[in-house]
Design a binder for these strands. Structure first.
Length: 256
DNA sequence: ATGCCTCAGCTCCTGAGA
């Protein structure tokens, strides 16, 4: 079973790239973030034609998440139960016995800002809910655009970017607290190339100079850890004309 | 350089992203 996550930065603009990628990489589940469209605009038929079921949760201009799957997702949940939020950031469903949570974590803009405080509250809300979900469904994957780096290995310029957004101790504390629920960063379960990132700034030729951050993650639960076979970042779509600023991340699970 | 790109929208500038 293969599961992937990709922040597409507008599904309208990126639809043909997503369809091309799915044809070349027929994963079982793909979580999308930053659809930037209302629900009525979601291109359900295009995914149908490729043999994917879709669940989506959109919003005008910003945010918006979707879950594509080869077999239908059940017990679909939108946003974090118990956390009041007017932004569309989370979609969860059960696929082939695995609880899959796709999430677009808040950016936070700047430490100390209102948006940063919202990010901290959102992270607390997510953690409480994921804790409960794990008790119900131990086989769980939490994947998406976390907008947080784990450590300096995930940062192209750890000195220059120390304590800036995505790299603060407070954000990393919350990320470690999620892991402490019994989750594992599937990417680091394997030896990986040095300077591996999942996002590169559009400005200043960030991708060409590999000035990036690893902020898109796939966490797997204790119950799934023994069957994780691989985790890779696919940089190919970042080389497209008019790419998303994020690359897809793909995890491969063996028989459950 | 409170910028550099890119995207959406009450669109020809602004806010937000990361």
């Amino acid at each position: 079973m293969k599961l992937a996550t990709w922040n597409v930065n507008s599904l309208s603009v990126r639809l043909s790239q997503v369809l091309d990628w799915l044809q070349a990489n027929p994963v079982d589940v793909l979580a999308l973030q930053e659809l930037k469209m209302t629900d009525d605009k979601f291109p359900k038929d295009a995914f149908d034609a490729l043999g994917y079921h879709a669940q989506w949760f959109g919003q005008k201009t910003y945010n918006g998440v979707a879950l594509l799957s080869r077999t239908p997702a059940t017990d679909v949940v939108k946003n974090i139960p118990g956390f009041d939020d007017d932004m569309a950031r989370v979609i969860a469903g059960t696929v082939e016995g695995v609880r899959v949570v796709g999430a677009y974590f808040p950016n936070g803009q700047e430490p100390g800002s209102d948006k940063f405080e919202y990010k901290m509250e959102w992270l607390k809300g997510l953690r409480q809910w994921v804790k409960a979900e794990l008790e119900v469904t131990p086989k769980l994957v939490l994947m998406g655009d976390y907008n947080i780096t784990f450590d300096d290995l995930d940062v192209w310029d750890p000195v220059g970017l120390q304590d800036t957004i995505h790299c603060t101790e407070e954000e990393r504390y919350h990320l470690r607290a999620l892991v402490a629920l019994g989750l594992h960063d599937s990417y680091r379960l394997f030896e990986q190339p040095a300077k591996s990132y999942s996002w590169w700034d559009y400005r200043s030729a960030g991708f060409a100079r590999n000035r990036g951050l690893r902020i898109d993650h796939i966490l797997v639960s204790n119950a799934l850890k023994p069957v994780v076979q691989a985790c890779v970042i696919d940089k190919q779509p970042r080389k497209n004309v008019r790419p998303s600023d994020h690359a897809p991340v793909v995890v491969t699970l063996g028989p459950l």
